[in-house]
Design a protein around this nucleic acid. Structure first.
Lengths: 340, 340
DNA sequence: GCTGAGTATGTAATCGATTGCCCAAAGTTA
DNA sequence: TAACTTTGGGCAATCGATTACATACTCAGC
């Protein structure tokens, strides 16, 4: 009762060898129907559970997939992980979670840990574009371990990625603000060493240019994704000769801070200033003054990333396929930018 | 380059045996300093990574811990998982995540999967109190695999748990509403087969009784943790002869729905009706009309659960220790119930 | 120079499941 | 009935790391 049951225990009980038991359990053709049934029943009755470690060691496949994210307690990453887990669980894979806390060293440690654990693949939203991790990432791909980037990617040959079209998202959001009649549009951006922020910024810039507007560096502020930083940014913006009449923030949290600060300064939203955030965090739609935001299709992104992994692991051809899946962002227009 | 390096490869290169390599890498006392250094350097240079599967198979310890939650994409569970992962990662454990989606069968499947994967322990927030899973839970404890409940527990001998004091939380919230001058306090509760909702309800009831008020069944509504259900509940409540002047909701989402519906019915908050939610979801403090809520110390709960696991796994005495850790809830009083 | 005690390493078994190769019994064919 | 096929299973190696036990060598002590 208290001991773990192995195929040897079953074999002993039935007076056959472990090989036969293994074959019976695996529906090997060389086993008679009688034996197979007998083994199956005995296994059931003895409460046998296959030792995945042993199986993994022999086969070289652990059925574990590593997922590395900056943190799990954010709506976005929580949702992507949910998507990944749902798809992979159905295919009998376990998901091992690691957090980097935006720390490059931790990221490298995590990668090493996962390699040690012999994961069959790694799905990662990288911390930034630094070169630090390139060596180990290369080793992963050299060893033919499927590696998939999601959300935050890096340009590496042969590595697939699943992202949203951040450029398009930035463009859409900005165009929307222009359509609302805004002419002085500020942008709260983030760490430029990350493609996501870079691309949102590019989309913002291009939308301005396409509408015969200039990109004014005073209107572009680099902040972290935090409420307070959004408020601080607004304080700076309000000091300008021409205060902006719209803000496109790369973060919902910064957008919220911005809105709070604008209100505190007596500005009316959306009449004086329109605001669009990014991420479609739950709170954006719950607010009385609901906040327009770009939805990143987090759940979908996770699912697609998992599916890309499955494709790669099942691809026996040996030909490396590099897939760049780009999901379409959806702009959720709410009160904070809906002048009507 | 492309192949995985094993201790045998190192041994061959140095013309020694794998045993020596293993000992050198493990700092076994019986190895000469010269050899140790040589092995270390060679291992480094050949980019050797220990195969955890092999090590796990031999030692019987996988260094994996399973975590089962209803879902990962909620603020609460995201935070607990963060806490668990932070503590366990530091101790070289990997965290395997499974979701039940509140489905009992899925929960049993997950437990089986984790047993198959030979996890060293399981930390779980159970789906409900049904008897379904008792057999397998018993098998886990019989096999001396540390099992820890968090948030949603079950009374099983020898199983430790980490929860917040839901009774106290319910009491505190209700007493606070009474202190605000409310006399007709409604309660939105949840699935009574879960201790958490049961205890919050009990705390609510006792607070009423202690203040010479009666528990009116009409004021108690069982809802799911959803915005719409909170709104529906309020619709019912407003039909009563004596509409309530306060609502204590076991869910922030239901509280939000309730507030929206109250406002829509022309009620003023907190003047006509005070509302307190549960969970301290981020949005509760972001709202213009910020929502009072009970904080569950999610991050802390995760950390403590992980620590209890570590204690159990390191407890060689063979004596089973059943720890019931009960964290104190903190009531965050905000505008929705702050009449002042 | 011989013995006993370390010291440093090799040998081989083990963890549990899988599988290529081999073999015995039963059945088939001429 | 001899020879050949099938069918059903056993034997033993393997995955990679660890470790009890055995062994070779060195050096000290007498």
């Amino acid at each position: 009762m208290n001991e773990k049951v192995t195929i040897y225990d079953i074999a002993k009980k039935l007076n056959i060898t472990a090989a036969t038991v293994s074959r019976a359990l695996n529906n090997n053709a060389k086993i008679s129907e009688t034996t197979r049934k007998l083994v199956m029943e005995t296994a059931n009755q003895m409460n046998y559970k296959q030792n995945q470690l042993a199986q993994a060691l022999r086969s070289g496949r652990s059925n574990n997939v590593g997922v590395i994210v900056p943190r799990v307690d954010s709506n976005f990453f929580g949702s992507t992980i949910r998507g990944i887990e749902e798809v992979l669980q159905a295919m009998k894979y376990n998901v091992i979670i690691c957090q980097t806390h935006e720390d490059e060293e931790r990221e490298i440690e995590n990668l090493n840990t996962l390699l040690n654990a012999q994961v069959d693949g790694i799905i990662i939203s990288i911390t930034n574009k630094s070169k630090e991790n390139e060596k180990i990432l290369k080793r992963i791909t050299d060893n033919n371990i499927p590696l998939i980037f999601f959300d935050r990617r890096k340009n590496i040959d042969g590595v697939s990625s699943v992202t949203i079209d951040d450029y398009k998202a930035g463009y859409m959001a900005t165009q929307h603000l222009i359509d609302q009649g805004c002419r002085f549009i500020a942008h709260l951006s983030g760490d430029q060493s990350l493609e996501i922020y870079e691309n949102r910024f590019k989309g913002y810039s291009q939308a301005l240019l396409d509408n015969d507007m200039k990109v004014n560096q005073d209107y572009v502020i680099f902040t972290k994704s935090k409420v307070e930083e959004g408020a601080l940014a607004v304080k700076k913006l309000l000091l300008l000769d021409q205060a902006p009449d719209a803000i496109f923030s790369s973060s919902d949290f910064a957008a919220l801070g911005a809105i709070q600060e604008l209100k505190a300064s007596g500005k009316s939203i959306p009449d004086d200033v329109c605001v669009v955030g990014f991420g479609n965090e739950p709170f954006t739609k719950f607010m009385e003054l609901s906040i327009s935001s770009v939805d990143q299709a987090a759940l979908e992104m996770g699912k697609v990333a998992a599916e890309v992994f499955l494709e790669q692991i099942n691809n026996k051809s040996g030909v490396k396929i590099e897939k760049k899946m780009v999901l379409s962002p959806v702009l959720q227009i709410r009160k904070s930018s809906g002048r009507k």
